[in-house]
């Protein structure tokens, strides 16, 4: 069995007639932590949305776990979760935000999973579970959104600038959490960050983007 999880072949994406992504061949191995680096507008976030099956490429083929993906169904999307740079929190408590993905899946032991996830991102469940979404700082909201992704234990975790609004201590926690889910659950991670040294520390391999293309 191949250990390649994603394979992109001749994938392009265009917005308003302008090509923003042009990837001839790109693969991601199962259980790898892949860092994506590059300037703003170099195509990293577009790549993340395509990997998350949130948008389809203008041309090219995507293979996931050896199968070509044309239209992503709910089962496939449940294997992949994306944390965006400015995550959206639902208008409910922290506990219910983190529990949302588990409730969709009809999971058991939701509360203990939510508590574990909050602990992993450095938020005390006793303090934060009942807090409302509007009572959080930017950094706390970022960590709650990350906890919501950790709780559903996806096969692939895509993190777009996960430490952008975090302090050094929280950045360290995110790094530990990323390494932990990979080691414990075999999660594949793709991380976009402008923090070059952090990205080098956390990733197995770094791909550099420039004007929509990958310069390995």
């Amino acid at each position: 069995m191949s250990d390649v999880l994603y394979r992109l072949s001749n994938v392009t994406q265009c917005y308003g007639g302008k090509t923003v992504l042009d990837v001839s061949d790109f693969s991601i191995s199962k259980g790898a932590i892949v860092g994506l680096a590059g300037h703003n507008g170099s195509g990293k976030s577009t790549m993340m949305r395509i990997l998350a099956f949130l948008e389809s490429p203008a041309s090219g083929e995507i293979f996931y776990d050896g199968k070509r993906v044309d239209v992503a169904n709910t089962d496939l999307r449940r294997e992949v979760s994306l944390l965006t740079q400015e995550p959206y929190l639902l208008k409910r408590t922290v506990g219910r935000n983190v529990a949302y993905g588990l409730e969709l899946r009809g999971a058991d032991n939701i509360e203990s999973t939510v508590r574990d996830s909050l602990n992993m991102v450095g938020l005390d469940p006793d303090l934060f579970m009942s807090r409302q979404w509007y009572e959080l700082s930017g950094g706390e909201a970022q960590r709650v959104a990350f906890a919501a992704r950790l709780a559903i234990n996806p096969r692939v975790l895509l993190l777009d600038e996960p430490t952008a609004s975090l302090d050094r201590e929280s950045t360290l926690l995110i790094r530990e959490a990323a390494a932990k889910v990979r080691d414990k659950c075999g999660t594949t991670l793709v991380i976009v960050s402008h923090d070059q040294s952090w990205l080098e520390e956390v990733s197995d391999v770094i791909c550099r983007f420039s004007m929509g293309t990958i310069k390995q």
């Binding site: 999307r77 979760s81 995550p87 959206y88």
Partner: peptide
């Protein structure tokens, strides 16, 4: 961002509408 958040947390079409 709401719709993408719901999609990426694994919501089906009917669950997106309800939420």
């Amino acid at each position: 961002r709401l719709k993408n958040t719901l999609l990426t947390l694994g919501a089906a079409h009917s669950q997106i509408l309800r939420t």
